[in-house]
């Protein structure tokens, strides 16, 4: 196997191991038995089909946001606005689902479509500002996250509010996404995986995807070789926004059913982190998202069974990110590379 590829897979695995090691030390320091705690964590996440369903359901929105990040970064632009695009998608979806009077499959299709378009529109703003004003797309897209969050606030406190609690009315039952095998996870998960495969196919098996990656790796050379660089940048923003917008719609129709304070909070940056750990590989991003969801779902069981607080799981998640980023940086160092190659060749001879 290609050595670079080998290391790029090895590093995240070692990072995960190290992060768990630190997690175990913390657990021990809290007076819990790390083995028992990890066992509980595993059981909570994958112990039975019901828990697996819960894990996949938690993973679904993360898959969407990490694919959103992947797609834009492959074209060399940092879209940190996945959360805003996710929320705008869900807001538009919520409006149509509750106000249009259409129900059932047509409603689902219409909602998801419009949610995607809304997300794409929201993502086009930083894209256009970057291309035509030279502005930093990261800061613009983050500002738009806040605008989207607050706008959603207007929706659930005011425009579509139902009753005394600040939340919107619920999506009609006929328009909800169907559950898979009676589990918590719905067809939204299937949509997410299909989009992941489509993104993978697009990036690696189509001419356009190839050119988009070329633009992401070297914009000047791409321009000299006749690629429409600006168009690709805008395109990648919009598609990544569409993915997030579809994600927001699917989350609303599949899991939450109504907008409420905290809907989708943090998913944007989670997605960015997962895309980075997956090294922008869309299929890996799906696995990473499931892994993180498992840590989150399992930690509740762990807390109940062993008293280890769920925040230990948060620390492990954070450490995985930091170790991976630092680790990938390290294997690129010439000295480190040389040392690894020595070990590598020594191992081969033995």
């Amino acid at each position: 196997m290609n050595k670079n590829r080998f290391f790029s897979i090895l590093v995240p695995f070692i990072s995960v191991l190290l992060a768990f090691l630190v997690g175990c030390i913390i657990m021990a320091a809290l007076g819990a038995n790390p083995a028992t705690a990890l066992g509980a964590l595993w059981k909570g996440a994958f112990g039975n089909t019901r828990n697996v369903g819960t894990t996949l359901s938690r993973a679904t929105p993360l898959i969407f946001t990490s694919l959103c990040a992947c797609f834009a970064y492959r074209c060399g632009v940092f879209n940190l606005g996945g959360e805003g695009q996710f929320l705008i998608g869900s807001v538009v979806c919520c409006y149509i689902a509750t106000q249009s009077g259409i129900v059932g499959l047509p409603a689902i299709i219409l909602c998801i479509l419009c949610g995607g378009i809304a997300g794409g529109f929201w993502a086009a703003i930083p894209g256009l500002l970057k291309i035509y004003r030279g502005q930093n797309e990261m800061i613009i897209s983050i500002m738009l996250n806040y605008v989207a969050t607050l706008f959603m606030g207007v929706i659930y406190t005011n425009w579509l509010r139902e009753g005394s609690v600040p939340q919107t009315m619920s999506v009609p039952d006929e328009s909800k996404l169907s559950r898979l095998f009676g589990l918590r996870c719905t067809s939204a998960f299937v949509i997410a995986v299909v989009i992941g495969i489509l993104v993978y196919y697009f990036l690696f098996y189509t001419s356009m995807g190839f050119q988009l990656r070329a633009v992401g790796l070297n914009m000047t050379a791409s321009q000299f070789n006749g690629f429409a660089v600006k168009r690709y940048i805008l395109f990648s923003f919009i598609i990544s926004g569409v993915i997030a917008g579809v994600g927001g719609s699917a989350e609303l129709l599949g899991t939450q059913f109504r907008l409420i304070n905290g809907f989708g909070a943090g998913y944007g940056f989670d997605g960015v982190a997962m895309a980075l750990i997956a090294q922008l590989h869309p299929l890996a991003a799906i696995l990473v998202a499931i892994f993180f969801a498992a840590l989150r779902v399992g930690s509740t069981t762990m807390q109940a069974a062993t008293g280890v607080p769920t925040s230990v799981s948060e620390i492990i998640q954070a450490l995985v990110i930091v170790f991976t980023v630092a680790g990938l940086a390290m294997v690129k160092l010439p000295e480190f590379k040389a040392a690894l190659e020595r070990i590598f060749s020594a191992g081969k001879e033995a």
Binding site: F78, L80, M138, F269, V272, A273, L276, P309, S311, V312, E314, I315, Q317, A318, L319, I321, V322, V325, A326, L328, A329, M330, K332, L333
Partner: peptide, 23 residues
């Protein structure tokens, strides 16, 4: 020291700080 992408590093720091302080 490692001459890596500053954006990626900065993002990682945000996540790390959030995890660390919450914990």
């Amino acid at each position: 020291v490692l001459a890596q992408d500053q954006t990626v590093s900065g993002l990682a720091i945000n996540m790390f700080a959030l995890g660390l302080t919450s914990f």
